[in-house]
Amino acid sequence: MKLDPAFIWTAFVKLLSAVPTTLFITVVSVAAGFLLGTAIALFRIYKVPVLGPLSAGYVTFIRGTPMLVHLLLIYYGLPAVIDGVSAAFGWSFRSVSIPYVVFALIAFTITASAYLSEVVRSGLLSVSSGQLEAAYSVGMTTPQAIRRIVFPQAFAASIPNLSNSFIGMLHGSTLAFTVSVVEINAKAQIVASTNWKYFEAYIAAAVIFWGLTVLIERLAGVLERKINIYNRGGVA
């Protein structure tokens, strides 16, 4: 078999139809993971009883296990739980009616929340306590100080980490093929299965992911520069 450059292009065009699915999974799990992760980070920073240590354990466990295992556990475990609860209460709802992609979204949100909680936490920790004291010294209330002083600085400091997490989740979304979600990776397999031109199909997939990644990095770079200009103007 010889490399078929024309088929790379064919595959590339076909794979584009799966890009929205990949982006949908990534954006939803990162957004939901960010909210959950922020809550987890705050529980830990403020050492909330019970929730604080629980959050710490959750983060350690999720970060210590492969994303694939989260997905498989949710995919096979959650239906059992749902059906069990449903049967116990005599509901007619059964897990079979839940689309596959929902399991992927739940699992990836869990994965993302653990990593993003670390991003949020280190972002908040990077703001010196003197900043908060200074905000109080000019008469700001706590919500004002957090919203106007702590968050903007923490966000600016977190952009590189946020961008990395986003890229990590983008790449991780390729695992969704194991639960029959047709994202870019699954689509590549489908495209290649007809003529066994896997190499060509995966070259096309790699190019798409590479492009998306570079794009995200660029955007993050632009955002970071913009925010840092604002910071320089405001602080120094």
Binding site: L170, Y198, Y202, W210
Partner: peptide, 19 residues
Amino acid sequence: VSFFRGTPILIQLFLIYYG
């Protein structure tokens, strides 16, 4: 560096295995 950081490891795995 850009390529190996910019593509999912799963894709790299398939690329090298098939390519």
